[in-house]
Simulated assay, not measured.
Amino acid sequence: MPDGVVQLLPTGFDPERFTPRPGDLAVMQSGDLLLRAGAGFDDWATLLARRVQRADLATASVDLSRGIALLEVKGRAVEASDGHAHGSANPHWWLDPVNAKTAVASIAAALLAADPAREAVLSARLDAFNASLNAGLARWSAALAPYANQPVLAYHNSFPYLARRFRLDIAATVELREGVSPGPARLAEIADIARSKHVRLLLVEQADPGQLTPALTRAAALTPVALPSNGEAPGETYVAMMDALVARLADAFAKVGA
């Protein structure tokens, strides 16, 4: 097994707009295990893996969305696309910390299958992660509990798992199609929704805040909140990302008097 993890996707880059670089093929050629978010989120990785002439890598590709109760499921298989449009379901499952626990268990199982001699180490690390995650979940739930059922808008359809776990109400999503900027009519419609439902916050991804966010926030008196939904700091852990996301969201709710 390799001594470490090689991250194909650059930190802070929008995964749905990523195009593999020439050197990524060589990196994948030398790897023992490929971990994918799945659900159409990183089809570029599937396409890249097909170019690697190794049958063992194909069998060692782990779709971390397996075993997770996905939202917005479409009745079709995931097909590799241009790397942006959502595939068989909404793929942003990791913004529900309970789903992250399932995914990390899948990672541990794959690592154990690849190297059974590391069972004790893997078990200890999994237990430590779960303990940290459980403590974080209690912390995040307490921080967002005062804002349960508060309506928010989302620019991109990235936050339904977050909303379900912490009981937020996403009144509308600005983009009608992933990656397609809304026109004037859609912006006017969203502004009407914001006013009628007394929405104060617009959730945007830190990596992709959206070109038309200023026009929309002015029209509907919204406060944009850029959330670090994909891990934007080098070496950042999942728990640290969620700490930052929840702190930023709770602070925004408090400032607008929700």
Rank of each mutant, 00 (worst) to 15 (best):
I107G: 02
R177F: 00
H156G: 04
L245S: 09
D32Q: 13
A145S: 10
G31P: 00
A250L: 10
I107A: 04
A250M: 11
R51W: 07
N130S: 09
A171H: 07
N149P: 01
Q29A: 12
F129N: 00
A110F: 11
A89Q: 12
L168Y: 03
I107D: 05
A138L: 05
L162V: 08
D127R: 14
F253M: 03
E232Y: 02
L111M: 09
D208L: 13
P224A: 05
A258R: 12
E79I: 08
L35W: 15
Q29L: 01
T59G: 03
T11H: 06
R139H: 15
N99Y: 00
F129E: 00
A60L: 05
D56P: 00
E16T: 12
F41R: 09
S65V: 10
P22D: 03
Q53I: 01
W140D: 09
A124C: 02
T173D: 06
V6E: 10
L227G: 01
E119A: 12
V225C: 09
D14N: 14
V78C: 08
P209Y: 06
R139G: 02
S88Q: 13
V121F: 02
K197Q: 15
Y238W: 08
H86L: 07
A105V: 12
P116D: 09
A148I: 06
G231S: 06
A226N: 11
M242S: 03
L126W: 06
L8C: 07
R177I: 09
G87T: 07
A128K: 13
A80I: 01
A258K: 07
L111A: 10
N230Y: 04
P10G: 12
Y155P: 01
A247S: 15
L9I: 13
A100M: 12
D243N: 15
G210R: 03
V225K: 14
F253I: 04
N90Y: 08
Y147R: 07
N230D: 06
D115H: 05
I107S: 05
L48H: 06
A254C: 07
L57G: 05
G4N: 12
F253R: 02
P91E: 09
L222G: 06
G257P: 06
A142Y: 03
Q7M: 04
D3S: 11
S229K: 03
F159N: 00
D24T: 00
A220D: 02
L153E: 07
G83C: 07
L126T: 08
S81H: 09
P2L: 08
V225R: 13
N134E: 14
P116V: 08
V73R: 15
A233L: 15
A89Y: 02
L111V: 08
A191S: 10
L227Q: 01
D82W: 03
L203M: 12
W94R: 11
V239I: 13
G12L: 05
P224G: 01
V98E: 15
V180G: 01
V73Q: 14
E178W: 02
H198F: 00
A247R: 15
Q7Y: 13
A49H: 06
G87W: 11
G38Q: 03
L8Y: 13
D96W: 00
G23H: 10
A39H: 08
G75W: 03
R164P: 01
V256F: 11
D14E: 11
D42E: 04
R54W: 05
A37T: 03
A109L: 11
L47M: 04
A55I: 04
